[in-house]
Each structure stands twice: as structure tokens, then as C-alpha cells.
Computed example of a mutant assay.
Amino acid sequence: MQLLTRFKISGYLFLWVLAYFSHCKNSSSSGENLAALLPLLNLTSDLNFCPKSPLPSEIQIATTVVSASANVSGFSDKNKAINGICGSGDLVGSLDVYALDITGPGASIVLSWGGKTVKNVTGDDFIVYDNSFRISDESNTYAMDPSVIQVSIDNTNFCGFNPSYTGGGVNIMNSWNRFGGLRPVYYNMSTKPFTNLELFTKTNGSFLLGGGDGFDLEDLDPNDPNDTGCDSNLVDTIRASGFKFLKITSAAEVNNPNTGSKFPWPPGSYNGSDIDGVVARELQ
């Protein structure tokens, strides 16, 4: 039996585990099902140690919530989007997150680095951490929160990466290109620390050593139809001088120009993207 339900509300964790275990006792594959629960049980201990305080000084984490209006029960603390990265690995998502709505004004959050500028350097310039996790033995099948990522100098005109969905399946990672919220988070500031350099180190193909989804400012697209305030001049300016504001929006709130309707939303989640944090490669 695959664990397809994205469990998010920490207060219900114990009751949910009991119910699931009761079902497993009547299953011929109870051993496998019990093994699938172990990451969830370990998660409760991880929550006691993360986020780390004070934050590691070398990790360039976004420190300011500029705007956010979601109010998802149990996950409405905006500070969770800037208080540290608390990943739980490949098989379970972190609960130390701020949850966005699927659609509407609460589907977006804008973060900043307290007035500092994220520079354009070689390779990925920042990493977005959500709480995706694998739900199948196939490494490409995940419970995901695809999010559209945009950057800005003035918090008015945003430029994005022209994300695309191929239609190959909402839980198939390769169906989503240039989105956040796709890859699991291995980085945990307390139990699995990394240096800032290690976080931006590629491993296992498109995955980063600490997980999350990396973005390179060289990939900004002035022709993204969802960024009407962006043009080639603004893209060139951001590439040359960096950006100060980052917007994360649940994909279901954004128009898919290939279909004329909103991007689909994966099943199993009653809310939108879950924000664990954002880390920049270099600030100025």
C-alpha cells in the first residue's frame, strides 16, 4: 500500500498513525506498511530540534515576510517561512512550514533578505524549500506542491522563469519544469546541517545535496506571459545587479499559457504550497 495522503496537521499525527497501524494489522503487507510509518515517527523527534536557534550565520536565508495572507489552520505562522530549514528527507515532508492557499490572494507570499540583494553568480542563485516527498518506489513520483517563482527589484515588477507543465501526470516530477515545490528537502539545520556551498552542490542529476529546487537568474524569461511587468531590459538589470524580493505562488493560481486555464493541482493536499524557507547563494 502506498502512502498517498499528504499528512500536514501535527496535532493529528498520533491519531492518524494509530488509525493507519490498525489498518495495517489486517493487511498482508503489514511489515511494509509499518516500515513506511517510521519516517513519520522520526519526524516527531526532528520537530523538537528544528529550527536551530540562532540560525547559522553563513546560511543566506530569506529573513523577512514582505506580504502573506493565507490562514491555513495549523500552518498560519508566517515566521515558519523564514525561521530555518527543517527538511525530513525523501519520504516525508516537514511540518515546520507556512502553508499558502491553493488559489486566491492567499496563494502567494513575498519574501526578502531585509534589504539585501541576491546576486547573480555562476550556477543556481537561490533555493526554494517546500516539503515534497516520494510516494512511490519510482523515484520520479512525489507528493508535490508546485509553485511559480518570480523575482523583483522593487516589489512591483516581477520576472519569472516561464514554468511549463507537460501533462504527463500531476505527481510525476518530470512533468513540471522550472517550478518550486518539486524536490524533497534533505537539509535540516539541526539534524543534517550543510554549509552554504554544499547546499548549492548538484548531486544525483538535477537534485541538490540538501534538496529543494534551485533557480539560476540566467534562466529568467522576459517572454513569460504571466509576467506582464517584465521585459528584456528588466531581465538584463536583474541579471547584472541581482534582486531583492522573491514571490512564491501556488501553481493552481497561475495561468498555464499552453492551455488557457490554471495549472493543475496534485491531489492529497487541502492547501497550497508549503514554504519551509529560501536560501540565497550570495548576498550584497
Rank of each mutant, 00 (worst) to 15 (best):
Met1Glu: 11
Thr5Tyr: 13
Thr5Ser: 09
Lys8Gly: 14
Val17Ser: 04
Val17Trp: 03
Ser22His: 05
Cys24Tyr: 13
Asn26Leu: 15
Ser27Glu: 14
Ser27Asn: 11
Ser28Leu: 15
Gly31Asp: 12
Ala36Glu: 04
Leu38Gly: 08
Pro39Tyr: 13
Leu40His: 07
Asn48Trp: 15
Asn48Met: 14
Phe49Ile: 11
Phe49Asn: 13
Lys52Glu: 10
Leu55Thr: 01
Ile61Val: 10
Ile61Gln: 10
Ala62Ser: 10
Val65Asn: 00
Ser69Ile: 05
Asn71Thr: 09
Val72His: 01
Phe75Arg: 02
Lys78Leu: 09
Ala81Arg: 05
Asn83Val: 02
Ile85Val: 13
Cys86Phe: 05
Val92Asp: 01
Leu95Val: 12
Leu95Pro: 00
Val97Thr: 14
Tyr98Glu: 04
Asp101Gly: 11
Asp101Trp: 03
Thr117Arg: 10
Val121His: 04
Asp125Arg: 01
Arg134Met: 01
Ile135Tyr: 11
Pro146Asp: 02
Gln150Phe: 14
Ser152Phe: 12
Ile153Glu: 13
Asp154Leu: 13
Asn157Trp: 06
Cys159Arg: 04
Gly160Pro: 02
Gly169Pro: 07
Gly180Asn: 11
Lys192Ala: 13
Pro193Met: 08
Thr195Ser: 10
Phe200Ala: 15
Thr203Cys: 12
Thr203Tyr: 09
Leu209Asp: 06
Gly212Asn: 04
Leu217Ala: 05
Leu217Gly: 04
Asn223Ile: 07
Pro225Thr: 07
Thr228Pro: 02
Cys230Thr: 03
Val235Met: 14
Thr237Met: 08
Gly242Asp: 04
Lys247Val: 03
Ile248Val: 09
Thr249Tyr: 08
Ser250Phe: 07
Asn256Tyr: 11
Lys262Ser: 08
Pro266Ile: 10
Pro267Ala: 04
Ser269Thr: 14
Gly272Cys: 10
Val279Phe: 15
Arg281Val: 14
